[in-house]
């Protein structure tokens, strides 16, 4: 009887410590992603999305981010319409994701000064997945970490066709800037 009770307590302890392991997740639901595809001397091609979701598992450095394409806002309504209907086909491919691992991530070594990490993972845009390696600047924030950075993608890598008529108005490499404040 007593042994049973001890067993029970041990299992209970294991269970509690197990759930504490889960509590290592840092999340955001209001991260921002901006992209910039403006060519010099042409109209600005840029948009911002302020409702990006992201999760960082602190113990392993596993990272996942998800952005809904329809949430990108442009200054010009027609540009937003073209972006959704002609280029991103957001009715069919409603989201873009990045899933990967931040190499050598160690929560205890994060300080107020931002430090560069490499994120290796798979980027899915327009229904097509490509492996990417991205530099992430991570710094400490209240109750979590701040992850920011920039990377470039080429539309043709994700089967996004740009008609030759507007080709010279849109940059070959699209600059993506992200800003995630990940908290517990």
């Amino acid at each position: 009887m007593k042994k049973k009770l001890i067993n029970f307590v041990v299992i209970l302890f294991l269970f509690i410590s197990g759930t504490q392991g889960f509590a290592q997740k840092l999340i955001t639901k209001t991260g921002s992603i901006k992209f910039q595809a403006t060519m010099p001397s042409y109209e600005e091609v840029a948009a911002e999305n302020k409702s990006v979701s992201a999760v960082l598992e602190q113990s392993t450095g596993d990272f996942a981010a998800l952005v809904l394409i329809k949430g990108f806002r442009f200054k010009v309504a027609l540009m937003e319409e073209h972006f959704n209907e002609n280029y991103m086909e957001s009715e069919k491919f409603s989201k873009a994701t990045l899933k990967g691992k931040i190499e050598g991530f160690d929560a205890s070594k994060i300080t107020n000064a931002s430090k560069n990490f490499t994120l290796n993972g798979d980027l899915t845009i327009h229904g097509k997945t490509k492996p990417v390696s991205v530099i992430v600047k991570i710094s400490k924030a209240a109750n979590g970490v701040n992850a920011i950075g920039t990377f470039e993608v080429k539309p043709e890598d994700f089967d996004i066709e740009i008609p030759s008529m507007v080709r010279k108005k849109i940059a070959d490499k699209i600059k993506i800037t992200y800003n995630f404040l990940l908290i517990k």
Binding site: I27, K29, S51, S53, A54, V55, A64, A65, L66, L68, I69, K70, G71, S94, K95
Partner: peptide, 16 residues
């Protein structure tokens, strides 16, 4: 609001 889709990470529906 405008429905912009489903977020699988948090099982959330988003409106903007």
């Amino acid at each position: 609001g405008k429905c912009i889709g489903y977020d699988e990470l948090f099982q959330e529906v988003k409106l903007d």
